[in-house]
Amino acid sequence: MSKGEEILKVENLHVSFKTYAGINQAVRGVSFSLNKGETLAIVGESGCGKTVTSKAIMQILPQQAAIGAESRIYLEGKNLLELSEKEMTQVRGKEISMIFQDPMTSLNPTMRIGKQIAESITNHSDISEKDAEKEALRMLEMVRIPNAKERLRQYPHEFSGGMRQRAMIALALACRPKILIADEPTTALDVTIQAQIMDLIRDLQKELNMGVILVTHDLGVVASVADKIQVMYAGEILERGTVDEIFYQPSHPYTLALLQSVPRLSTKNKDTLYSLKGTPPNLIDPPEGCPFAARCDYGMGICRKKDPDATVVSGTHSASCWLHDARADRKGLPDLFRLGGEQ
């Protein structure tokens, strides 16, 4: 839909965590890119590696995490993984910003809201504190906080949940970043407030021509804002495509399962919803072959032996599944499912 130049490119990202039980391979070879003004949604269940991926881009992973030596994260051609911590500080907040599910984790409870926003501005540019305060006021007005002038002098605990989320967005956008990573930005909020916040992010994205990475498990939110989607499972991307491709022509059984497990307008009341059996694999000892094989309704012998490569379905759409191989047994596969590869 909105095409712009590429600003972020992630290549072969691997992230692993040292735990007492062994090494947990949270992200296993993820590659993707993001253009200016575009919204990319990363969808998946808890523990699939979607948050770890976004934290790796920001380089705010905890100490026991390690990023693989072969991984590359390019921001406008510059590899972020080669930057020193000092250089990275200049990237965070100024070029890439992140907002979280719980606003209290990123707001300082002992500091007035206005001061926090102003501080973020003075840290990244050479303007006076006075001008920064003025800019902070403008930011609060931009995220539509009523009585912004008074609110500037208040502390986070004096704000309601929705207001805090707005304040956090104001803080994240204060330096006009090129990329905004929103990690479950509305999960903790009521639907009416959720709608307000998503509208706000969309409007600000247009105004600043930002690239947005939306990390979420809410398919409704994804349908309303995303341009393209990638579906993650067990640290891998199983399918990627435009919104319409993913929703109307899924090409991976896992995507299909996610779509069928939420009630749609057409679902009859009290009908049995599709539900996935089992649990995601343990990533300390990931299974051989396709990680989804054990829970898949269409699994074949090969699925448990060899991990499938991504098959191109269309220019923008690809999926990693053996069903796309011409030799596959596709019995019972719904018509909705779109096949790619050599037919």
């Binding site: 639907v191 009416t192 409704g220 349908a223 919104v243 319409d244």
Partner: peptide, 25 residues
């Protein structure tokens, strides 16, 4: 307003849906 704020997991419906905004909290 509440009903129109529910995001529906269907991109085409979402594109044509008219939302009734509800101001404030």
């Amino acid at each position: 307003a509440l009903m129109s704020s529910i995001p529906i997991p269907d991109p085409k419906t979402e594109r044509i849906k008219r939302r009734i905004p509800i101001e404030g909290e």
